[in-house]
Design a protein around this nucleic acid. Structure first.
Lengths: 271, 271
DNA sequence: CCCGTGATTCTGGTCATACCAGATGATGCC
DNA sequence: GGCATCATCTGGTATGACCAGAATCACGGG
């Protein structure tokens, strides 16, 4: 059941001429023309064609998350390209998190989106080099909104998840990884209560990338008590479905985080 | 000046044993262990090491956007791996938008972040399949916030840009690509006035991916007049630095967009 | 001495082939 | 029927080759 027909066809009905000489030149020409036009509608290089195919199959619903892709050898044969090109495509998609591949088993479409935006976000920050304030502003605006919505939409299940996350946070509270995973998980649990997966996941990735970008956030424990307090307030507000109070609590929590960020920034004044 | 030293070293001081047999087995073992643990701290495959290297160089500031990378052959030699692995890494990063590569010239770190998140976002939506409401909620929350901040922070330059974008939008208003590029550029111009590049870019990519995800948004012209009106109000509010009015105008614009989305959804009831 | 021209070199894009090691699945023995 | 064994398949990696266009440099004319 895994591998639905998929008869992939590369857009070109190229006359199969020799393949070593003619085909590349065609691509090259297309490439140049496209490059000059600034557009990229026609994939210039083969691996992009492979990716475009997979994307199309996803879009058309012929492939669904979890499905197994044909083997690299089979794909390369069907697509009429070398295995290297297929590998490059698969590798690139793996990096995006679209595909998961196990060494001697095969490649599957990811069943979960976890990890899909981490690297892209990380690189985005490395390239854009946003200030701490910029990140915090974006984060804050999403989190505060999410807190309010969470209060309005939360189910009992959500409450349980948030409580569990909070408990975990407390359990690791004495450790050094302040602001680390548990904290992110708590915030994610709150965001999840909005029942907007896109929002939840975007925020989560933003937090992950932020944490990785502002490396070693750990040193200071400043405001930990305040932060715990904010978290408690937040949970209470969400439980009581008090959107305004939830937003206020989250806003305060953001403020605390901003303070921490300030300390970090001032202590590492360079770069 | 382009290629700063870079003496890349793969983390392992492997005793250079034959290289065809021993090294892979080491990776394999590490890979399996990591896979079982669910983590991925140790890059399992070589191309990930290459990527990690580049990321590290970026993080350390030894490489900056625009710099030219060593040639694939040179990289593969320095890293002690095959050129394929290097290509896979470069290709993957190209897909992320981190690297730009021209056929007979070389690979450079992208100077612009444009296009960095497009594909990731697209795939995220293809995998997550969020509802129109989910997208719109996320979009709306960012846009409304941005409108307010734009009103507070805008410079005269920003006003000019927004006006220009609005003019372009009007110019193409009679065409079919309603809700297309010009509209996104207008919204981006507003977001740019917040002077938070991260926010601006994130929103932009979200809009791009949204447009690509909700394909063929064009058919209906419903609400175009209202939308124009909202845009005018928005511009006015930003010009007058009236944050509340700006948020209100944007909120209305989001409402219009939601309506359009509703129509689209109801007219294509399937999939 | 400058500049244009032409050949050489370099680079990315593609391909073919080969081998390894682990996973998979079929086969056959008990 | 259950379990061990082996052929096969798969992804990971390596080597080597060629193409076409870009980049570079050397050379000769002005």
């Amino acid at each position: 059941m895994p591998s639905p027909e998929l008869d992939i066809v590369l857009g070109d009905d190229s006359p199969k001429i020799d393949k070593r000489k003619s085909v590349p030149s065609i691509f090259k020409r297309l490439h140049r023309e496209e490059a000059e036009a600034g557009s990229s509608l026609v994939p210039s290089v083969i691996y992009e064609k492979v990716i475009a195919q997979i994307k199309m199959l996803l879009r058309e619903g012929r492939y669904s998350p979890g499905d197994k892709l044909p083997s690299e050898r089979e794909l390369s044969e069907r697509l009429g390209v070398n295995r290297n090109a297929v590998r490059e495509a698969i590798r690139a998609l793996t990096l995006l998190g679209v595909i998961q591949t196990r060494p001697q088993s095969g490649s599957h479409l990811s069943t979960q989106v976890e990890g899909m935006l981490h690297l892209p976000f990380e690189f985005l920050m490395l390239m854009l080099r946003p200030s701490y304030q910029e990140i915090q502003e974006l984060r804050g605006l999403i989190e505060v909104y999410a807190a309010g919505r969470a209060a309005e939409r939360r189910t009992d299940e959500d409450i349980k998840n948030i409580e569990a996350a909070l408990e975990e946070l407390y359990a690791t509270n004495h450790q050094l990884n302040y602001g680390g995973g548990p904290n992110r998980r708590f915030h994610r649990a709150v965001a999840a209560a909005t029942h907007n997966r896109l929002l939840e996941y975007l925020l989560f990735c933003l937090l992950e990338a932020r944490s990785s970008y502002i490396h070693s956030l750990s040193p200071t424990g400043t405001g930990r008590r305040e932060q715990n307090q904010h978290h408690e307030r937040l949970l209470l507000a969400i439980r009581q479905k008090d959107a305004a109070a939830a937003r206020a609590a989250m806003q305060d929590d953001m403020g605390t985080a901003a303070q921490v960020g300030e300390i970090i920034r001032s202590s590492t004044t360079d770069s």
